[in-house]
């Protein structure tokens, strides 16, 4: 019972990026992947959801390997991503965006709807319901993107740079929302972030990615206080 990336290799046509990457995310766990620009963080999540082809290795969830499935089938299995830059459908309303998220839920829908809890905690999304998504501010868009992903009833949720381009205050909101999502959905969350300090503070465990390889892994709090991580990613000399 976990999301498993086993010895994954992937990248672009002439540029292999990930090599031998292995990691796992348990249900209900928040796992951070930190690393500098170009380390392969986005490549990693894109490979897991099938936007980039896996060249070697395997990907599996609770139901076994999904490495050969197309992107939309992985979403239907509950492997859901919030892409970098949020990628809301710009000319659909907030409500329509979230309705599309529900398309992926399928049989997993039912029971208490976690979307309601999110909308209660962050009423701004409900206030914007009928507005076209591209008219929202960056922070609001990220709220909607996260709500849309929760509407898909994720078993494993991958977040690619959710704080990108947001003010420190909005970033705080986003991290609060992520915490709430973990609590309400019980999904295993893989958080890819350049804001290493905040990501490590929020996470249970973490991996450090460098040049497409995992160079460190372990308890997030321990990594956060380790000298190497502090020097390389937290701007402490």
């Amino acid at each position: 019972m976990s999301l498993v990336v086993d010895n994954a290799e992937s990248g672009y046509d002439r540029a292999p990026i990930l090599s031998g990457v292995s990691l796992r995310v348990e249900p209900g766990e928040l796992v951070a992947v930190v690393g500098s620009n170009g380390a392969g963080k986005t490549t990693l999540v894109k490979t897991i959801v099938g936007q980039l082809a896996l060249r070697a290795g395997d990907l599996a969830d609770d139901d076994g390997s999904f490495a050969k499935l197309s992107s939309h089938r992985r979403a239907k299995r509950g492997v859901v991503m919030v892409p970098e830059g949020r990628k809301l459908f710009p000319r659909l309303t907030v409500g329509e965006n979230i309705a599309l998220g529900r398309r992926a839920a399928g049989k997993r829908a039912g029971g208490e709807d976690p979307v309601d809890a999110l909308l209660d905690a962050f009423p701004i999304v409900r206030e914007r319901w009928g507005q076209q998504a591209n008219l929202l501010s960056g922070g609001e868009q990220q709220m909607v993107a996260l709500t849309r992903a929760v509407a898909a009833r994720p078993r494993y949720l991958l977040l690619d740079e959710p704080s990108l381009g947001l003010s420190p205050l909005k970033t705080l909101d986003v991290f609060r929302l992520i915490e709430l999502i973990r609590e309400r959905t019980g999904a295993g969350i893989l958080l890819v972030e350049q804001m290493a300090d905040q990501a490590l503070a929020a996470a249970d465990r973490a991996y450090v990615l460098e040049h497409g390889r995992i160079v460190m892994e372990g308890d997030a709090a321990k990594l956060r206080s380790s000298d190497e991580v502090r020097r390389a990613y937290l701007g402490v000399s």
Binding site: H72, A75, L100, A152
Partner: peptide, 17 residues
């Protein structure tokens, strides 16, 4: 709605199943 989503961004539409 699915048609409009695919029209605006097919990659993200596939993330919605």
């Amino acid at each position: 709605l699915m048609m409009r989503a695919v029209s605006q961004d097919p990659d993200t539409a596939s993330l919605m199943g």
